[in-house]
Design a protein around this nucleic acid. Structure first.
Length: 533
RNA sequence: GCACCCGUAGCUCAGCUGGAUAGAGUACCUGACUACGAAUCAGGUGGUCGCAUGUUCGAAUCAUGCCGGGUGCGCCA
């Protein structure tokens, strides 16, 4: 209808012309004009059935690889190693991981980058606190087991003891100058903190490995060069003793020019400097066609600035796209940034443990006959999948309300719904396998439930392609929920066990294809399906 | 002050490159287990899509203004 207006034609007449042009297309059974000029296209059932059948023998056909594979750098998770990971790290970590899985499935060369915060002022404070304890090695190790408490203790002293604060600042300088003792202490702390992260990554099945670490300290050696090159390009301006880049498009308070501070007045560097070094590394050394920053939306101004400076300075190749994949802030139930009643932050480990224990309770209730080991496997899968799904299923740009009950819910549009659909299919397949009845090679679509289900399955490839561009995993969640819903309707309306002959093998095949699609989609979310639950 | 994001059912959220009667989940009310697995299914109650104006054959969606909330704006990351 939009085209009709441009062409100044009657929309219904134009629709007729389109329909005539479509005639002969074997995919289309019939097409008709509706309302002011809508075209309703009815797909040919035989072609649908043939396409679905073709996927049976080649499950890889469910996802169509990109015709233009790219090298894509994805910067995600990137926790600050000074503290333990908390619920605020959940989004970036699992959204990033899902995006990585989707891009890899599309055949892109994906380079994960875990840009952990391991450098800067707060590490001076931590080293100072460490060194005051390190005379007693055991006490030190015990202290570090609770990273959060360790940080809090150090911070308390930093704020309360002037001598300690001076010591901390001195340690930062020594560290950045490469002092051996400082480096040893620092490395010990980093190692401890990384093990905490890896524990969480393992629990979440997040694919970040040591190889993917590219910490802030990694770019330390490049920072003087960044300053030097910006100076050479004439982009650098001294302002109040700091080295800054001023760009016309950014204005601060009262319309005053807003700087990107590259080097502090005391000679120290900031995160903008590190990010610039990282951009150059990703563009030139990693050869990225696209760099995705999966980072909290509150940093969008920062990234706009850094991207603009990188462009202006030529730190990034023309054909390398830089994108901030922003996600919303986590809020409390009061609509304010999230804190527990006591003002603490919920640790990620605690949240996941709670989820697993609730799932354990439920699985024991639902399926008391399962072995303990199987119950434990189901509980950990269901519990953690629920936490991931409740987060992934929300539009990433929206602010995020943290709520125990919705995050740990197992009913409705939740991970268990999808897992349950999958487990049901496996159950039917097992049953018939015992009678030596196997899915057929050909799917026939006779009832509306079969048809709707097949259409949905065939839309999967297109969706994944779109996800590779937009990076909204919640659309995948919605798809899988609808797919499961259509399967449930099919399951109710089209009995498999009680049918016979070709109808039975066709339905069984359709169920199997549904399972394959579900498994594929769940994998893209970072969720492993269960054979039974 | 400026910029970005957000206001959709009691609650949590989809839908936003304009399209047909605005959708889920949850909560609440009915109904369905001698079972292809009830972590399910079928049905019902529940909406001035923040307000207003505009563009359009047509607006939750686009534009402008207003109201309300969040976030960010020079040496933290």
């Amino acid at each position: 209808m939009a085209v009709a207006r441009q062409l100044r034609q009657n929309p219904r007449e134009l629709a007729m012309q389109v329909i005539n042009a479509l005639s002969g297309n074997e995919l289309i059974a019939r097409a008709e004009v509706a309302g002011p000029g809508f075209i309703n296209i009815f797909l040919n059932d035989d072609m649908l059935a043939a396409k679905a059948s073709a996927c049976l023998s080649d499950p890889g056909a469910l996802i169509v690889p990109s015709q233009h594979p790219q090298t894509i750098v994805v910067d995600y998770s990137s926790p600050n190693l000074a503290k333990e990971m908390h619920v605020g790290h959940l989004r970036g970590t699992i959204i990033g991981d899902s995006i990585v899985r989707i891009l890899e499935a599309l055949g892109h060369c994906v380079l994960r980058q875990n840009h952990v915060g391991d450098w800067g002022t707060q590490f001076g404070m931590l080293i100072a606190h460490m060194n005051s304890l390190s005379s007693d090695n055991r006490a030190f190790s015990n202290n570090l087991a609770d990273l959060e408490g360790f940080y809090r203790a150090a911070k308390q002293r930093f704020d309360a003891e002037p001598g300690f604060a001076d010591q901390a600042r001195a340690y930062v300088v020594k560290l950045q100058q490469g002092d051996a003792d400082c480096l040893t202490a620092w490395q010990r702390f980093i190692e401890e903190s990384l093990q905490h992260c890896e524990e969480v990554y393992n629990l979440l099945s997040v694919g970040l490995k040591r190889n993917d670490l590219r910490a802030e300290s990694f770019y330390n050696k490049d920072l003087p060069t960044i300053v030097h090159d910006l100076f050479d390009k004439g982009l650098l301006t001294e302002s109040d003793g700091a080295q800054c880049v001023f760009l016309d498009e950014f204005k601060g308070k009262d319309g005053s020019p807003l700087p990107v501070i590259i080097q502090k007045s005391d000679g120290g560097y900031l995160y903008a400097s590190t990010d610039l070094a990282a951009i150059r590394y990703r563009s030139d050394n990693l050869g990225a066609d696209r760099v995705l920053y999966v980072v909290d939306a509150r940093q969008s101004l920062h990234f706009q600035q850094v991207f603009a400076v990188a462009r202006a300075a030529g730190f990034v190749r023309e054909n390398c796209k830089l994108e901030h994949i922003a996600y919303g802030t986590m809020m409390g139930e009061d609509g304010k940034p999230f804190k527990t009643r006591s003002g603490d932050i919920v640790k990620l480990r605690e949240l996941l443990a709670e989820a697993v224990s609730r799932a354990q309770y439920l699985v024991t209730e639902k399926n008391p006959d399962l072995s303990d080991s199987e119950k434990a496997l189901i509980a950990s899968t269901v519990g953690i999948a629920s936490v991931k799904y409740s987060d992934l299923s929300k539009n990433r740009t929206s602010d995020y309300v943290f709520d125990w009950s919705s995050m740990l819910s197992f009913e409705g549009n939740t991970a268990p719904y999808l897992l349950y659909a999958y487990a049901r299919i496996q159950s039917v397949l097992r049953r018939l396998e015992e009678e030596s009845i196997f899915p057929g090679d050909h799917i026939q679509l006779q009832q509306s439930e079969e048809r709707s289900l097949a259409v949905k399955i065939l839309q999967f490839a297109e969706l994944v392609q779109l996800l590779g561009e937009d990076c909204y995993p919640n659309q995948l969640c919605l798809y899988l929920y609808e797919l499961s819903g259509l399967f449930m309707k099919f399951y109710e309306g089209c009995p498999i066990l009680k049918s016979e002959g070709q109808v039975r093998t066709s339905r069984l095949a359709l169920a199997k294809l549904t399972a394959a699609t579900l498994k594929n989609g769940l994998n893209l979310l970072g969720i492993e399906p269960l054979q039974r639950m």
